[in-house]
Design a protein around this nucleic acid. Structure first.
Lengths: 259, 259
DNA sequence: ATTTATATGTTGGGATACAGTCATAAAAAG
DNA sequence: CTTTTTATGACTGTATCCCAACATATAAAT
């Protein structure tokens, strides 16, 4: 058998080269690659099929492109909740006042929120760890955008790490605006530890927190609970939670606002 | 005439929809788009050609992909020095060794450099204030990317300010890799004060500095001189400086490396 | 040495993309 | 209302892609 003997033939090396090329150019065609690597187009196609399978590239008609890292939640965008998220974002935007200091976490819903507040002519200060949020807000010169330091994770488009948490301790905000991968009786959840720690820290440094989540997140546990329900939290959603989740939220004094 | 009357027909709206779709899916085929939008494939092709022209999408064989753009200095990249910059970036990349700690400044040339080193399989740590650099490097998981804190400037895609300078004092690097708007006898220049201060701080915190600049920058004064020529500086360019500039560089002990 | 598995090239058929040209409908300009 | 511009669809010939089947050469396994 084989079992990873390295480059038994030119195959492994060639596939590595394809990936390297794709780092340099965002998309390449089959013919190009065949020429560059001196093999037939069919061989390239087979390589691409394999690499695509492993998620190392994205196949396109006629060639391949660099894999998309940077999707705000590859899994998340699937749900067609776009309209719901827009409404949630609009409702949340209504909660923001002139000269507020905000902390905004990453995610698809908070990005919608950022687009909303960027469209309003009001001075704000925003502290964030998400590239997408900063880029969305930067169209409005009235908004002062402070980026947190830390290690950049290209897959999520976010910064996180100990430096990030540390830097947050130097700030205070009126409002933290956070998304969630799931909502459980213990509190809002996130699918990754690093970002979760940041959301928790943001909650503690803000006078109040808005949690933006559509109803598909109800009772959906994710990796980590980043913070508790409390009287400082307002959940903004498109439907009211039911059962245990509703009880937990109410008994902790958290508010629910429907979009 | 027309002159931006909005959607005289479905064209504008349809093109916006294409861009929106492309935000959701990184690549789409002509046929898909034609179906989704209920127009003929020819119309889609014309739309794509137009959007590609304007840089809003990237055309691929059989469809279109999300633009990888995000080039800082839309104005700057216009200059046809792309080939020169590529060579300069390649030469600079050859100076980098395994496990180096780099500080990389913003700019078109340093972005080329970032793409180069991202294509090499070697572990590195990179400290930067430029979104484009971080995003370019993030395709390579061997590279640890540390973002500096500070205020985000969306026009340049960079972070700067007092916090940024302050954070730099906590780091040390082997090499600073910096671009320049101009080179004068006093040293490399930059067109903005904020970034210039950062480049100066990076120089002081790095054991050596590579200045990447094509020959069009020679003797071109810009707003601020961000650092002096010294024996710790290597200028990497596509041509040798002449006259006073060459004398100044040589007398300070700085090296010149031709790409 | 023989067998087996893997990697690659070649070929052919069917589908798709592309560029150019022409025709038509709708909108803007006069 | 007529003319002109713009947007779009339809058609055609050529180039490209994709997939499947087959052939071959090399490397591993027995």
């Amino acid at each position: 058998m084989d079992g990873e003997t390295g480059r038994r033939s030119g195959k492994t090396g060639r596939q590595e080269q394809i990936i390297a090329d794709l780092r340099l150019y965002p998309a390449m065609r089959v013919g190009e690659l065949a020429d560059r690597l001196g093999v037939s187009a069919e061989t390239i196609r087979r390589d691409l099929a394999e690499l695509d399978e492993r998620g190392l590239i994205n196949r396109t008609y006629g060639g391949a492109m660099r894999p998309v890292v940077y999707e705000p939640g590859l899994a998340e965008r699937e749900g067609l909740m776009i309209a719901e998220r827009q409404r949630i974002a609009a409702t949340a935007a209504g909660e923001i006042a002139h000269n507020d200091i905000l902390m905004i976490g990453g995610g698809a819903t908070t990005l919608h929120f950022a687009h909303r507040i960027a469209a309003v002519q009001q001075p704000l200060t925003v502290i964030t760890h998400a590239f997408s949020i900063a880029m969305a807000l930067s169209v409005n010169p009235l908004i002062k955008i402070l980026m947190l330091p830390g290690q950049y994770d290209g897959r999520e488009g976010l910064i996180h790490g100990a430096d990030t948490i540390d830097a947050l301790q130097h700030f205070r905000a009126n409002t933290a605006v956070l998304g969630a991968s799931g909502l459980t009786v213990e509190g809002p959840n996130d699918a990754a530890v690093g970002p979760g720690l940041i959301y928790g820290a943001m909650m503690r440094r803000a006078a109040r927190t808005l949690v933006l989540a559509d109803h598909s997140k109800f009772d959906r546990p994710s990796l980590t609970v980043y913070g508790p329900w409390s009287s400082l939290v307002t959940l903004i959603s498109d439907a009211a939670p039911q059962g245990d989740l509703a009880d937990a939220i109410a008994s902790c004094g958290a508010a629910v606002s429907l979009a």
